[in-house]
Structure formats: C-alpha cells, structure tokens
Amino acid sequence: MMYLKSAYEIRDKYMRKDMLPTIFCPGCGIGSALQFTLRAIDDLGLNQDEIVWVSGIGCSSRVPGFVNFDGLHTTHGRALAFATGIKLTNPDLRIIAFMGDGDAAAIGGNHLIHAIRRNLDVTVILINNFTYGMTGGQVAPTTLKGLRGTTAPYGQFENPFDIAQLAVSAGANYVARWSVFNYLQGMNSIKKALQKEGFTLVEFLSPCPVSFGRRNRMKTSPELLRWYQKITVPLAKAKKMKPEELEGKIVIGEFVDRDRPGLVREYEAYKKRAKKMMGWEE
C-alpha cells in the first residue's frame, strides 16, 4: 500500500492558486482524474518545469489552466496536433494531453488516430463522461445507445465508439481504461503511461451528474459511480464472455502495453539518415 499524500499537499504543490476554485460542478469526475495525474507525477518525482499540459475545448480541457505547469489551451479537437509541434521542437518536454471524449473522439478523432499512428510521445488522460458538458449536455460519440442528451431527447440511436479499443487498433503503446472509482489502478496506469515512450492513453469513465446524469435518472455522482460499477467488466473476465453478454458493457483494464519506438526517436534517426544520404555525416 502506498502512502498517499493529503489532497491539500498535492493541491498546494501543483495548482495555480490564483485560478482556483475550478469551474467544475459538484460531483464532477474531472477533479479525481486530475488528482490521479498529479499524484502520479508526484510519485514519479517528475520535474514540474519539464511537463507541458495541452488541451482542446470542453470542461476537461480547462484543466491546464488550473495546474501550475506550462499549458496550452487550444481549439476544439486539435490538442494533439498542437502537441506534435511542441514535442518535436523540444523533445525534452513531456506532454500530457488532458482531453474530453467529445474533443478527442468527435471533432478530434482524426488527430487522435494519426497521433497514435505516428506514435507521438504524449500521455493522453481522457475524461469520458458520455456528454458535452460545457455546451449543456448534447450527446457525444461515446454516448451509449438509448441514453439521453439535449440533442437526443428521445434517446441516442447511434452506435458508440470504444475509444480505448480504437487506440489499440490504431497502434498505441499503452492503453488502459478505468472508471474514476478505480483510483489505484487509474493512478498506476498513469504512472506507467508517463514512463513510456510513444503514445499512451488512460481513459476514465467520469461522472457528469449535471449535464449527463440528470437526463439519465442519475442525478448524483454516487448513482453514476454505482452505474459504472454495474456496466464495467474487468478485461480478464470479459475475455471469457460472449459478444451478446458484453452488449451494453464497458470493459476496463490494461488493453495494451508495448514498446514501439516513439516519433521523437524515429525523427532523430531520420535526421541522421538524411545527413548521411546527403554526405553531410558519415
């Protein structure tokens, strides 16, 4: 059992005091995921000045404004494209992209799969709350069938994305999914992700009682957490289940952990090769 520092200690060390309080609603899960991330950074003893937080638009994307690091709050869906520029320009910087599901998988879905394909060295913390919280609760590409949103007043009729699975098949080095309820696993996954080269992603099922829960008969965070417990299935167990049994369930766990070379390493080798080909270097 690891020693857990008090939340105050973490807050005082890593948050921008002049930006608090955060804009998050009571019961929102973003704070938990944020805390896991900060604790992971703390546990690993990473240098605060060598990390840049990047985000797009949405509730989760406001996080870089609250933490005391270099931070780039960008346009909707494009965080990973911005991150590509930062990382390749200054490979010494570690990049954390804090993203929501709408941002990462709807408008930003393409940048997501292409960053994964390139194996961009970045750790994505993905807050999946099944909704667009900031604009008032529209359905997202992750919204499960039948769930409601302001733009699906009669229940979502589209099929949802499984972001983690998509990341695995696009080629990410590390992919895990937890609900914010699984705090130890979540934190450990972030720690693993932060230590790896290449693209790493930790997805969190995160309660949004105000924009999402309220419209789906789960007004409070505990109700949502209980629901997550009900619909999540650990990977080991899921492997033994039939597709029909998995209908409507969400698998949690570590999906992949591999070591393909990251984009930065590839680019360094590329520069060497270019110079060699042009006779600039032996």
Binding site: V52, L72, T74, R78, T84, L88, T89, H111
Partner: peptide, 17 residues
C-alpha cells in the same frame, strides 16, 4: 500532418516551444 488544420496547430505548438 493529417490535414491543414493539424498543420497550423502543429506550428503554433512549435512556436510556443
């Protein structure tokens, strides 16, 4: 990059780095 949107995004990121 995968498109022009990403291209300008990447150069803005690079500029801040």
């Amino acid at each position: 990059m995968e498109d022009e949107i990403a291209s300008i995004a990447a150069i803005i990121g690079a500029s801040w780095a």
